[in-house]
Design a binder for these strands. Structure first.
Length: 444
RNA sequence: GGCCACUUGGCGGAGUGGUUACGCAGCGGCCUGCAAAGCCGUGGACGCCAGUUCGAAUCUGGCAGUGGCCUCCA
């Protein structure tokens, strides 16, 4: 079965054929660790994790790289405000991201490079760009000369002359051209920095990805991904740097996930309308959040709401109850994905369609003679989406906070006694309380 | 101003030139002390206006609305 993916670069759905037959390379832009992650960061991680799972299923080898940006002005500013070292900030939030992602059942990437571990590679990268005439030194900065690269703007579909220079950020004096971007910038002695041929300084944002891709995956990779908002300028600049440095295309496929919205507006740190992963995870299980994200196609904008989450919790409970008992008879490696589910996923990661097929298997189980077989197919399919990670005996998918558990257990016990006494008035009263606490009662 | 998306039932959300998507919620039934779950059944939709066509929610054009990007962002 062929895999099709929508390539942002060509704006078409195309058949995916890796550069090397059995080995696939994928790079996704990871977070800048200057603050806690919001659910938009989570969407991106979940989308590329799901794609990685599908690629791993189809191909023998996948090398999936997701970076950590641990040098950046925002990190420096946070450290200043909190009066701590930048390494304290980056360590703290890297850990938070790792925790949040794990609870969303996002598997760790094969390689997770840190920008600060690749300063040498970045300096070498700049040297080549200067030598090739694509970069210049000006007022302690090294800048990429956009006019030296004819392919500039092809990914994002824009021309430099269409853009309004300084529309949001005023044009710096050291730039020859408003579109030029920083490869290296000076650092004062009291800020994080590294020695370089251009003085003590630090790299510009876009450079790390180009340098780390080259280091870990090679000059041309199969898939480069990230949020839609990174298309311009970040990915456009990566292409410019890498193509000019290596004289080869950077990536065969560009994959971008759509942005999350709250009400009408995109969720973003700058607008302040974001929902933190860690806050959401206090109230909902990660699997329900993951289901909520995958219930929409990855390229579509998704309006985030509590209704969506409540629906996901219910749906997940139904899936678990359909395999209740049967899942204990199967081992994970006997579980292979259903053909129709695979077909949906191979069609540009159509997770809503894949979920519809999963529901259809789930519905069949109770009526079927081959309950175990269908359970295997259901679990195998759901696992490919990072769902149904627990056994049906675990109650982890319920929307219940840890602190309530003892109280809930007591209530359930009291209700049992009331029912034995046939005091149904009392048992119904307790059930109402439990329902309000988000606990569903299943008497059989 | 330039460029790019999107618009499907109460809500979420796929897909297709003619036939049930699916999920949640609703309604009717079986089951149950009553519920829930499960099972059976069921109503309800394709932004607006033209065009192409035997037939358009699907293709084409126009319009409207919503959103994104134009050097912070996933």
């Amino acid at each position: 079965m062929d895999l099709f993916l929508y390539n942002s670069y060509t704006r078409k759905k195309q058949i995916f054929i890796p550069v090397k037959d059995d080995s696939v390379t994928m790079y996704a832009c990871g977070p800048t660790v200057y603050g806690p992650g919001h659910i938009g960061n989570g969407r991106s991680a979940i989308v590329f994790d799901t794609l990685a799972r599908v690629l791993r299923y189809k191909y023998k080898n996948l090398i999936y790289v997701r970076n950590i940006t641990d040098v950046d002005d925002k990190i420096i500013n946070t450290a200043k405000e909190e009066k701590v070292e930048t390494s304290f900030v980056t360590k703290k939030f890297t850990e938070e991201y790792h925790n949040d992602f794990a609870r969303l059942h996002v598997l760790p990437p094969d390689i997770e490079p840190y920008a600060t571990d690749h300063i040498t590679q970045m300096i070498d990268f700049i040297k080549i760009l200067i030598k090739n005439g694509n970069a210049y030194f000006s007022e302690s900065h090294v800048l990429f000369n956009v006019s030296s690269f004819t392919g500039y703007g092809e990914l994002s579909g824009r021309k430099t002359e269409d853009m309004i220079p300084g529309a949001r950020i005023k044009v710096a004096s050291y730039k020859k051209n408003p579109s030029d971007f920083v490869l290296w910038k000076p650092s004062p002695n009291n800020e994080v920095g590294w020695e370089s041929p251009w003085g003590r300084g630090r790299p510009g944002w876009h450079l790390e990805c180009s340098a780390m891709i080259k280091e870990h995956l090679g000059e041309t990779i199969d898939i480069h991904g990230g949020g839609e908002d990174l298309t311009f300028p970040h990915h456009e600049n990566e292409i410019a740097q890498s193509v000019c440095c290596n004289d080869k295309p950077l990536a065969k496929f560009w994959i971008h996930n759509g942005l999350l919205r709250t009400n009408k507006l995109k969720m973003s740190k700058s607008l302040g309308n974001f929902i933190l992963m860690k806050d959401l995870l206090k109230e909902y299980d990660g699997e329900a959040i993951r289901l909520a994200i995958l219930s929409s196609h990855y390229r579509q904008p998704l309006i985030w709401s509590s209704d969506l989450l409540i629906q996901s919790v219910k749906t997940l409970n139904k899936l678990y109850s359909s395999i209740k008992g049967y899942d204990l008879e199967v081992s994970k490696d006997e579980c292979t994905p259903d053909k129709k589910v695979l077909k949906a996923l191979y069609d540009d990661l159509n997770t809503p369609k894949a979920l519809a097929e999963i529901f259809s298997i789930s519905k069949k189980i109770s009526k079927s003679e081959n309950k175990v077989e269908l359970t295997q197919s259901l679990i195998g399919s759901a696992n490919l989406l990072g769902l149904l990670n627990f056994s049906s005996d675990d109650k982890k998918f319920k929307k219940t906070s840890e602190s309530n558990i003892d109280y809930i257990k007591d209530l359930i016990e009291e209700r049992k006694i009331a029912r034995v006494k046939k005091d149904y008035l009392e048992s119904d009263r307790i059930r109402d309380i439990l329902i309000k606490l988000g606990v569903e009662i299943n008497d059989n």
